[in-house]
Amino acid sequence: MRRVLAFPVLALTAGPAAACNICHSPTSLGVRHLLFSHDFWLNAAAVAAPLPVLALAIVLVAREPRR
């Protein structure tokens, strides 16, 4: 029972993340640096750009025309 309880407790603490072997490698540091550089929000906006158009198309088809 203790082992079962220990799992969610450990999962919610930062311990497992600190123990991550690859999270602090030079490669992962480079990835984080590149990811969160000054153009993060521009990149995020570019990735998300098609979504509003696609969502609008779904909404327009789903909407019942008024009588």
Binding site: T27, S28, G30, L34, L35, V47, A48
Partner: peptide, 20 residues
């Protein structure tokens, strides 16, 4: 590094498609 950074953006794109 650039491949893995692109991989993160690929993942965010996949996540958005999952929501759709």
């Amino acid at each position: 590094v650039s491949a893995k950074t692109n991989m993160v953006w690929d993942g965010l794109f996949h996540a958005a498609m999952w929501v759709v």
